[in-house]
Protein backbone atom coordinates (compact mmCIF):
# COMPACT_ATOMS: atom_id res chain seq x y z
CA UNK A 1 0.00 0.00 0.00
CA UNK A 2 2.76 2.45 -0.78
CA UNK A 3 3.51 4.87 -3.55
CA UNK A 4 6.72 6.13 -5.04
CA UNK A 5 5.18 9.57 -5.47
CA UNK A 6 6.58 11.98 -2.93
CA UNK A 7 5.02 14.70 -0.83
CA UNK A 8 6.43 18.12 -0.09
CA UNK A 9 5.39 19.24 3.38
CA UNK A 10 5.95 22.97 3.73
CA UNK A 11 7.65 24.45 6.81
CA UNK A 12 8.89 27.76 8.13
CA UNK A 13 7.65 31.06 9.58
CA UNK A 14 5.51 29.46 12.27
CA UNK A 15 4.09 26.51 10.36
CA UNK A 16 4.20 23.87 13.05
CA UNK A 17 2.52 20.59 12.15
CA UNK A 18 4.95 19.49 9.46
CA UNK A 19 6.40 16.58 11.44
CA UNK A 20 3.19 14.79 12.41
CA UNK A 21 1.79 15.39 8.92
CA UNK A 22 4.84 13.72 7.42
CA UNK A 23 4.47 10.83 9.89
CA UNK A 24 0.79 10.35 8.93
CA UNK A 25 1.68 10.22 5.24
CA UNK A 26 4.56 7.86 5.92
CA UNK A 27 2.32 5.49 7.87
CA UNK A 28 -0.19 5.60 5.03
CA UNK A 29 2.57 4.68 2.59
CA UNK A 30 3.90 7.94 1.18
CA UNK A 31 7.32 9.41 1.84
CA UNK A 32 7.69 13.15 2.13
CA UNK A 33 10.29 15.87 2.45
CA UNK A 34 9.77 18.66 4.92
CA UNK A 35 10.89 21.70 2.92
CA UNK A 36 11.38 25.20 4.25
CA UNK A 37 9.53 27.71 2.08
CA UNK A 38 12.77 29.69 1.68
CA UNK A 39 14.47 26.67 0.11
CA UNK A 40 11.73 26.59 -2.52
CA UNK A 41 12.05 30.31 -3.12
CA UNK A 42 15.83 30.00 -3.38
CA UNK A 43 15.45 27.14 -5.84
CA UNK A 44 17.26 24.65 -3.62
CA UNK A 45 14.19 22.43 -3.79
CA UNK A 46 11.83 22.13 -6.72
CA UNK A 47 8.11 21.74 -6.43
CA UNK A 48 7.90 19.75 -9.65
CA UNK A 49 9.85 16.92 -7.97
CA UNK A 50 6.77 16.19 -5.89
CA UNK A 51 3.23 14.99 -6.50
CA UNK A 52 1.59 16.18 -3.29
CA UNK A 53 2.01 19.65 -1.82
CA UNK A 54 0.95 19.98 1.80
CA UNK A 55 0.48 23.20 3.71
CA UNK A 56 0.30 21.78 7.23
CA UNK A 57 -1.18 23.33 10.31
CA UNK A 58 0.46 26.08 12.26
CA UNK A 59 0.50 29.72 13.09
CA UNK A 60 2.38 31.12 10.12
CA UNK A 61 3.40 34.67 11.01
CA UNK A 62 1.49 34.32 14.28
CA UNK A 63 -1.85 34.77 12.49
CA UNK A 64 -1.00 38.48 12.32
CA UNK A 65 -3.04 40.29 9.63
CA UNK A 66 -5.51 37.39 9.41
CA UNK A 67 -4.65 33.70 9.66
CA UNK A 68 -2.76 32.39 6.63
CA UNK A 69 -2.73 35.77 4.96
CA UNK A 70 0.91 36.71 5.43
CA UNK A 71 2.11 33.25 4.39
CA UNK A 72 -0.19 33.32 1.35
CA UNK A 73 1.35 36.66 0.42
CA UNK A 74 4.80 35.11 0.65
CA UNK A 75 3.76 32.27 -1.66
CA UNK A 76 2.03 34.62 -4.09
CA UNK A 77 4.93 37.08 -4.13
CA UNK A 78 7.64 34.44 -4.61
CA UNK A 79 6.34 31.07 -5.79
CA UNK A 80 3.22 31.75 -7.78
CA UNK A 81 4.30 30.45 -11.17
CA UNK A 82 5.66 27.22 -9.64
CA UNK A 83 2.37 26.69 -7.85
CA UNK A 84 0.34 27.33 -11.00
CA UNK A 85 2.45 24.86 -12.92
CA UNK A 86 2.04 22.30 -10.13
CA UNK A 87 -1.73 22.74 -10.18
CA UNK A 88 -1.80 22.14 -13.93
CA UNK A 89 -0.20 18.71 -13.49
CA UNK A 90 -1.66 15.48 -12.11
CA UNK A 91 -0.87 16.52 -8.57
CA UNK A 92 -2.70 17.05 -5.30
CA UNK A 93 -2.61 19.90 -2.81
CA UNK A 94 -3.68 19.55 0.81
CA UNK A 95 -4.05 22.35 3.29
CA UNK A 96 -4.87 21.56 6.92
CA UNK A 97 -6.00 24.29 9.34
CA UNK A 98 -3.51 27.11 8.79
CA UNK A 99 -2.84 25.40 5.46
CA UNK A 100 -6.53 25.71 4.55
CA UNK A 101 -6.37 29.39 5.52
CA UNK A 102 -3.38 29.80 3.20
CA UNK A 103 -5.18 27.98 0.36
CA UNK A 104 -8.26 30.17 0.85
CA UNK A 105 -6.19 33.36 0.74
CA UNK A 106 -4.38 32.11 -2.37
CA UNK A 107 -7.67 31.21 -4.06
CA UNK A 108 -6.57 27.58 -4.52
CA UNK A 109 -9.99 26.66 -3.22
CA UNK A 110 -12.63 26.88 -4.52
CA UNK A 111 -10.81 27.86 -7.77
CA UNK A 112 -13.81 27.81 -10.09
CA UNK A 113 -11.53 29.05 -12.84
CA UNK A 114 -7.84 29.63 -13.40
CA UNK A 115 -7.90 33.23 -12.18
CA UNK A 116 -8.35 31.87 -8.69
CA UNK A 117 -9.71 34.95 -6.96
CA UNK A 118 -10.37 34.79 -3.23
CA UNK A 119 -13.92 33.51 -2.90
CA UNK A 120 -14.10 32.19 0.65
CA UNK A 121 -12.85 33.36 4.01
CA UNK A 122 -12.07 31.65 7.28
CA UNK A 123 -13.05 34.32 9.74
CA UNK A 124 -12.36 34.44 13.46
CA UNK A 125 -14.38 31.86 15.38
CA UNK A 126 -17.71 33.13 16.58
CA UNK A 127 -16.50 32.84 20.19
CA UNK A 128 -13.53 35.03 19.30
CA UNK A 129 -10.91 32.67 20.75
CA UNK A 130 -8.94 29.63 19.70
CA UNK A 131 -10.93 26.44 20.11
CA UNK A 132 -9.15 23.14 20.68
CA UNK A 133 -11.45 20.13 20.94
CA UNK A 134 -12.38 16.94 19.14
CA UNK A 135 -15.05 17.22 16.44
CA UNK A 136 -16.85 14.68 14.32
CA UNK A 137 -16.78 15.10 10.55
CA UNK A 138 -18.89 13.45 7.91
CA UNK A 139 -18.03 13.38 4.23
CA UNK A 140 -20.40 15.52 2.18
CA UNK A 141 -19.20 14.33 -1.20
CA UNK A 142 -17.75 11.23 -2.76
CA UNK A 143 -14.31 12.05 -4.01
CA UNK A 144 -10.75 10.86 -3.83
CA UNK A 145 -10.31 12.39 -0.39
CA UNK A 146 -13.41 10.93 1.28
CA UNK A 147 -13.53 7.45 -0.18
CA UNK A 148 -14.49 4.78 2.35
CA UNK A 149 -14.77 7.26 5.22
CA UNK A 150 -17.94 7.09 7.32
CA UNK A 151 -16.68 9.75 9.68
CA UNK A 152 -13.54 11.33 11.05
CA UNK A 153 -13.05 12.14 14.73
CA UNK A 154 -10.16 14.51 15.27
CA UNK A 155 -9.22 17.82 16.87
CA UNK A 156 -9.83 21.31 15.65
CA UNK A 157 -7.43 23.87 17.01
CA UNK A 158 -7.80 27.26 15.46
CA UNK A 159 -8.86 30.81 16.14
CA UNK A 160 -10.07 31.46 12.61
CA UNK A 161 -12.04 28.64 11.04
CA UNK A 162 -15.39 30.29 10.64
CA UNK A 163 -16.00 29.46 6.98
CA UNK A 164 -17.92 32.06 5.02
CA UNK A 165 -18.59 33.09 1.44
CA UNK A 166 -21.30 34.73 -0.62
CA UNK A 167 -24.62 32.99 -1.14
CA UNK A 168 -23.80 32.42 -4.82
CA UNK A 169 -20.44 30.91 -3.98
CA UNK A 170 -21.99 28.65 -1.37
CA UNK A 171 -24.68 27.52 -3.80
CA UNK A 172 -22.07 26.72 -6.41
CA UNK A 173 -19.77 24.90 -3.98
CA UNK A 174 -22.67 22.77 -2.80
CA UNK A 175 -24.08 22.22 -6.29
CA UNK A 176 -20.77 21.05 -7.64
CA UNK A 177 -20.17 18.68 -4.72
CA UNK A 178 -17.16 20.59 -3.46
CA UNK A 179 -18.02 20.41 0.24
CA UNK A 180 -15.77 17.58 1.35
CA UNK A 181 -16.52 17.43 5.08
CA UNK A 182 -19.09 18.93 7.41
CA UNK A 183 -19.16 19.15 11.19
CA UNK A 184 -21.76 16.78 12.61
CA UNK A 185 -23.04 15.64 15.99
CA UNK A 186 -21.80 12.46 17.67
CA UNK A 187 -24.61 10.49 15.96
CA UNK A 188 -23.54 11.90 12.57
CA UNK A 189 -26.67 14.06 12.27
CA UNK A 190 -26.09 17.66 11.10
CA UNK A 191 -24.52 20.05 13.61
CA UNK A 192 -26.89 22.74 12.37
CA UNK A 193 -24.45 25.45 13.38
CA UNK A 194 -24.71 24.44 17.02
CA UNK A 195 -21.65 24.84 19.24
CA UNK A 196 -19.61 22.82 20.08
CA UNK A 197 -20.43 20.34 17.27
CA UNK A 198 -19.78 23.15 14.85
CA UNK A 199 -16.90 24.67 16.80
CA UNK A 200 -16.48 27.99 15.03
CA UNK A 201 -19.77 29.08 13.46
CA UNK A 202 -18.85 27.90 9.94
CA UNK A 203 -21.49 28.49 7.32
CA UNK A 204 -23.42 25.30 6.49
CA UNK A 205 -21.19 23.41 8.98
CA UNK A 206 -18.44 23.38 6.38
CA UNK A 207 -15.16 21.94 7.68
CA UNK A 208 -13.43 21.37 4.36
CA UNK A 209 -13.88 21.99 0.65
CA UNK A 210 -12.14 20.93 -2.50
CA UNK A 211 -11.27 22.92 -5.57
CA UNK A 212 -13.56 22.68 -8.57
CA UNK A 213 -11.21 20.15 -10.15
CA UNK A 214 -11.14 18.15 -6.94
CA UNK A 215 -7.36 18.10 -6.68
CA UNK A 216 -7.01 20.62 -3.87
CA UNK A 217 -8.50 20.08 -0.42
CA UNK A 218 -8.66 22.57 2.41
CA UNK A 219 -9.64 21.14 5.81
CA UNK A 220 -9.84 22.91 9.17
CA UNK A 221 -9.65 19.89 11.54
CA UNK A 222 -6.48 17.86 12.04
CA UNK A 223 -6.71 14.15 11.15
CA UNK A 224 -2.90 13.94 11.51
CA UNK A 225 -3.24 14.70 15.22
CA UNK A 226 -5.31 11.59 15.88
CA UNK A 227 -3.62 8.89 13.85
CA UNK A 228 -3.70 6.36 16.66
CA UNK A 229 -6.46 4.83 18.73
CA UNK A 230 -4.94 6.36 21.89
CA UNK A 231 -5.08 9.84 20.34
CA UNK A 232 -8.89 9.76 20.27
CA UNK A 233 -10.55 11.82 22.96
CA UNK A 234 -12.81 8.97 24.11
CA UNK A 235 -10.35 6.09 23.71
CA UNK A 236 -10.36 5.14 27.43
CA UNK A 237 -14.10 4.41 27.27
CA UNK A 238 -13.74 2.57 23.96
CA UNK A 239 -10.87 0.57 25.41
CA UNK A 240 -12.80 -0.40 28.53
CA UNK A 241 -15.75 -1.51 26.40
CA UNK A 242 -13.61 -3.55 24.01
CA UNK A 243 -11.77 -5.12 26.90
CA UNK A 244 -14.97 -6.26 28.57
CA UNK A 245 -16.20 -7.63 25.27
CA UNK A 246 -12.97 -9.58 25.00
CA UNK A 247 -11.98 -7.74 21.83
CA UNK A 248 -8.49 -6.53 20.95
CA UNK A 249 -7.58 -2.85 20.92
CA UNK A 250 -6.99 -1.33 17.52
CA UNK A 251 -3.71 0.54 17.14
CA UNK A 252 -4.83 2.97 14.44
CA UNK A 253 -7.75 5.39 14.39
CA UNK A 254 -10.37 5.84 11.69
CA UNK A 255 -8.60 9.03 10.63
CA UNK A 256 -5.84 7.11 8.84
CA UNK A 257 -8.24 6.31 6.02
CA UNK A 258 -7.99 9.94 4.98
CA UNK A 259 -4.25 9.60 4.39
CA UNK A 260 -4.61 6.19 2.77
CA UNK A 261 -6.97 7.76 0.26
CA UNK A 262 -4.26 10.19 -0.77
CA UNK A 263 -1.77 7.36 -1.19
CA UNK A 264 -4.36 5.33 -3.14
CA UNK A 265 -4.75 8.20 -5.62
CA UNK A 266 -1.09 7.99 -6.54
CA UNK A 267 -1.12 4.19 -6.79
CA UNK A 268 -3.88 4.20 -9.36
Amino acid sequence: MTTTAKALVMSGYGINSEMETAVALMRAGMASDIVHINDLIAGEKTLSDYRLLVFPGGFSYGDDMGAGNACANRVRNNLWSDVEEFLAGDNLVLGICNGFQILANLGLVPAFDEDRPREIALMPNRKGVLECRFVTLKPAAENLWTRGITHLYCPVSHGEGNFTCSEETLARIEREGMVAFRYVRDDLSPAGGEYPYNPNGALADIAGITSADGKVLGLMPHPERAMEFVNLYDWPTRKERLKREGKPLPSESMNMQFFRNIVAYFRE
Binding site: C132, R225, A226, N231, Y233
Partner: peptide, 10 residues
Protein backbone atom coordinates in the same frame (compact mmCIF):
# COMPACT_ATOMS: atom_id res chain seq x y z
CA UNK B 1 -8.20 27.86 24.32
CA UNK B 2 -4.82 26.18 24.64
CA UNK B 3 -3.87 23.93 21.76
CA UNK B 4 -3.22 20.60 23.48
CA UNK B 5 -3.17 18.39 20.38
CA UNK B 6 -0.43 19.86 18.17
CA UNK B 7 2.52 17.53 17.51
CA UNK B 8 0.00 14.69 17.47
CA UNK B 9 0.76 13.18 20.88
CA UNK B 10 -2.52 13.72 22.76
Amino acid sequence: RYDHTVQGGH
